[in-house]
Design a protein around this nucleic acid. Structure first.
Lengths: 349, 349
DNA sequence: GCCCTTCGGGAATATGCTTTCCCGCAGGAC
DNA sequence: GTCCTGCGGGAAAGCATATTCCCGAAGGGC
């Protein structure tokens, strides 16, 4: 009984068991356009239950020419930003009877392209690209071409937080959120800012920085170039960036904005290592509102993105009839969350 | 050019383009046992590249009778414990040329069973169950039966942190880690403990509590029943549990152990709300060593599990020849990480 | 009462691919 | 020079399912 490897039971077996034809069995089980006599139907269902039959989805896919698969591409599934989005995607894909397959680009555009190509082999119904876009990118055109081919053969492409003409997308108001954040921070009394910009080749980082600096500019405040540190888009990037900033000896900085929360967390840690207390000595603000932002001490001021909902909206859009041309979907609203990490500048500042 | 929906190009097209037979085209592209003339092979490859051909994996699966799919079942993808494991799984599955599909049980045994059944339709090569086991469970037998059927038809089952006879697993030394933690905390001088036990119907929670209490017992210390709070296995569960504990007015408790890190984080937050400072007034220790444990203040003492590696080991084991009977794999070692949340009891305690 | 629909079961075909099987051809042994 | 062997191309037979097409039977209209 160990290595018996008995073949999985097929629709054939069910049909035989029920004493009906293959066609009738198929029709009974997945309710086609054709109706089937109630007696037969029951017999088939009973046989299927008795044999513990499960339709072979691959065979169904081949026969029908479509799958029930959603392919999701993220940069790094261990990053809370992406795992929250993934949770939303999985949840609502499941509600729609879709299976989701995931792959990680590890933030490499080349890998992204390779994966898209490979994923195309799966003939997924929809392909969701959540890995952020890089501004300058040789493989960009190749990606677009690949995706266009994918859509031409009937698949649906949805970008997350990345506006790509000709493709559908769930947008996030990165610019607006960052701008609003800047203004509210000014409202708290902050005047001297610095920013950790993540990798500026990432459009998301660019947008947030642009929104933030514009928000400052609207109040006549400038963000001097030497106070904008380019660094990795990760926690460790934030850590390194803060050390770099400290190394520049800008002692009068009142608030450091990082383009995402994980960087803020790294920055806070670096700040402490250099003997200063986040919130007290220097304000910190991030972007995304990952769970950790609320758990960290002091709680992190940030811009909230409803991450799970973004995931849900992605598959919702994918299931809608094709928008026929990228009417660029109203961006998901963001919300500034002021918390303890930005109590306002210290009186003696 | 919008709704053209041109059919995806098939192996047929490639063969025609290259002027060879279907068989030769197939053999050239996936290197079968049969060799094919180098000239032909090149012609086929060129044709495939020119047409931008991608094999239809569903068709391949049907023809071969196997897939390249790994199905991964987790409780909640947004939980860092699971997303870290998932990251490991995805990474090394990909190295092995496997695609991973994910689903979330939302911690419901019924859902788990339903999903396993549905996933079976995919005929995955391996099925990884990472959602924790519930002790008393009506659907348990059904699950086992389902999985046995799955293995009988050639699939591989790997449990994560859950020892199920007859199935392979990657184990985690929950008991040993917790026990070691208890002893080290005693070494720091702590004597009066309490614990937030998560849902005690979860075996993982049980093991950790057992290890912890046994560790205490080895030094003649007891964990009175009224100091063990059953609560949810989540962050909010930890929060609620800590409030509950505080409500019991046990003011002499020096250290609170929570069965996982997310609960510890919730507990720290609750502690602050009730006016006490984690680490200073009460020590806190968790389990898992998720990233946040290091980012929180004070940094959380915990028991480290190499989560990503656990994921990698899961697919590594799945790819090995079947162990033929559950020799229960040496458990993955855990490591106690003493951090600032347990500086030792306050002198005046 | 006859003809025309409609209903619905079943045989057969299609899907895109792998693999078996057949067969021709070239090369080596004697 | 014949026979045998082995290499490798191509036709064809699967794989598990969906769907088209055919056809008999039942029902309704006049």
């Amino acid at each position: 009984m160990t290595t018996a490897r008995k073949a999985p039971i097929t629709l054939h077996d069910v049909a035989r068991e029920a004493g009906v034809s293959l066609a009738t069995a198929s029709r009974s089980l997945n309710g086609s356009a054709r109706r089937v006599n109630e007696d037969y139907r029951k017999r088939v269902l009973a046989a299927a239950a008795k044999l513990n039959y499960t339709p072979n989805t691959s065979a169904q896919a081949v026969a029908k020419g479509t799958t029930n698969t959603v392919a999701l591409l993220v940069a790094d599934i261990a990053d809370p930003y992406f795992s929250s989005i993934a949770a939303g995607v999985i949840r609502s894909a499941e509600d729609a009877g879709l299976i989701v397959t995931m792959a990680a680009t590890e933030r490499s555009p080349e890998r992204e392209l390779t994966l898209v190509r490979a994923l195309r082999g799966q003939r997924p119904r929809v392909l969701i690209l959540a890995a952020s876009r890089v501004a300058e990118e040789a493989s960009q055109d190749a990606l677009i071409a690949e995706l266009a081919a994918f859509e031409a053969m009937g698949g649906r492409v949805v970008f997350i937080s990345r506006n790509e003409l000709d493709f559908d997308s769930v947008l996030v108001d990165n610019y607006g959120g960052a701008r609003q954040l800047a203004e509210e921070l000014i409202g708290l009394g902050y005047r001297r800012f610095a920013a950790l910009a993540g990798d500026l080749s990432l459009l998301t980082a660019q947008d947030r920085i642009a929104g933030f600096t514009d928000g400052l500019a609207a109040h006549g405040i400038e963000l001097p170039p030497d106070r904008l540190v380019r660094t990795g888009f990760t926690r460790d990037g934030g850590h390194a960036g803060m050390l770099e900033l400290a190394g520049r000896g800008l002692d009068d900085v009142e608030l450091v904005f990082t383009v995402n929360d994980v960087m803020a967390v790294g920055a806070m840690s670096a700040l402490r290592e250099s003997g200063r207390e986040p919130g007290v000595d220097v304000g910190i603000a991030g972007f995304d509102d990952i769970q950790t932002a609320r758990d960290v001490t002091p709680a992190l001021t940030t811009v909230r993105i409803p991450l799970e909902e973004v995931g849900r909206r992605a598959i919702a859009r994918a299931l809608l009839p094709s928008p026929e041309s990228g009417e660029p979907a109203t961006p998901t609203a963001t919300e500034v969350m002021l918390r303890a990490s930005t109590p306002g500048p210290r009186p003696g500042g």
